[in-house]
Simulated assay, not measured.
Amino acid sequence: MRIPPLYRHPVWQRFFAGAAVGGCISWLIFLFMFGSIQQKNSALIEKQAMQIRELQGYIKIWQEDYQELNQKNEEMLTIQELEVEIENFERYDITDRQSIFRAEESIKEDLRSLIAKDLTTVYENKEMIKRTVENKTLDINGKQYRLVVKELYFYTTVSLVLEIKLAG
């Protein structure tokens, strides 16, 4: 198979030459347009990357400040309230809820000095709080009862869960 002898016809020569020159020019135009678009996109990406680094720096500063403030606030926590609950009084046939309420209020009154104290100070003295409560004897319906600390929770509210036992 051979190529037809079109090289002898000037019309075909001009057509192929024009197609080759047009292809080269269109390729150069494509490269220019593609390059300018890529340059704009890379500048945009670089600008956004710089903004991301800047904002991450701000986030880091804010997080450090936030953690610092949280730590200061935790150090400044104080006791706001006392909660006392006496359990198992039904075991000793104490049906008088008023007596249990008065006993709980009496213990709250003994521990009233803890209010507005620093949380860490109160926590460090938890053994003294236990001894204060456990050394107290209650007179309910003519019988003597002792208290045993079952649970003791510390936060802005000191919560005591106590068991009642016969003093003997």
Rank of each mutant, 00 (worst) to 15 (best):
E105K: 12
N88M: 03
K150V: 06
K130G: 00
D139A: 15
L55M: 04
R131E: 14
Y58E: 13
V148R: 12
W62N: 04
E151D: 12
E109T: 09
S106D: 04
N125F: 12
Q67I: 11
I115A: 00
M76C: 03
E74K: 14
Y58R: 11
I129D: 06
Q144M: 10
R97K: 14
A103I: 02
E104M: 00
K60N: 02
E87V: 05
E54V: 05
E124F: 15
L77F: 08
I86D: 05
T156Q: 09
E83H: 02
K130Q: 01
T137G: 05
S106I: 02
K126G: 03
T121S: 12
L119R: 08
L152G: 04
S113V: 00
N135C: 07
N70G: 01
L69M: 02
R91M: 02
Q56W: 07
L160A: 06
E134D: 10
N73G: 00
S113Q: 09
L162A: 00
E105H: 06
I94L: 06
T78P: 03
E85C: 10
Y155I: 01
I140G: 04
R146A: 15
I115N: 01
K126V: 03
E68N: 05
R53Q: 07
T132P: 05
E68A: 03
Q67N: 09
I140V: 11
Y58W: 10
E68C: 08
K130W: 01
N141I: 09
I129F: 09
R91V: 06
V158P: 01
Q80C: 10
I115Q: 06
E134P: 08
N70K: 14
G142W: 09
E124S: 13
I52G: 01
V84K: 00
I100W: 01
Q80K: 11
F154W: 13
K126M: 14
V149L: 14
E151N: 13
E54A: 12
D110S: 00
W62C: 04
L111D: 02
L111K: 00
R112S: 01
Y153N: 08
V148H: 10
K150M: 10
E64W: 03
N125A: 13
T137R: 15
K60H: 02
N135R: 08
Q144A: 15
V149W: 13
I100T: 04
R102G: 05
R97N: 09
V122P: 11
M128K: 14
D93W: 07
T121F: 15
T157A: 02
E54M: 11
E85A: 01
I59C: 06
Q98I: 09
L160P: 04
Y145A: 01
L152F: 11
E64T: 09
D65F: 01
L152M: 15
E124A: 11
E127M: 15
T95H: 07
N88W: 12
F154P: 11
K126L: 10
R97Y: 04
Q51Y: 04
K143M: 10
T132R: 09
L160S: 03
E81N: 15
V122E: 08
K150T: 03
K108V: 04
F89M: 11
Q80I: 10
T157L: 14
E87N: 07
D139H: 12
Q56F: 05
T132E: 13
E85Q: 03
D96Q: 15
K126S: 07
Y155H: 13
R53K: 04
A116S: 02
N141Y: 10
I52A: 07
N141Q: 15
I129H: 10
M128V: 13
T95R: 07
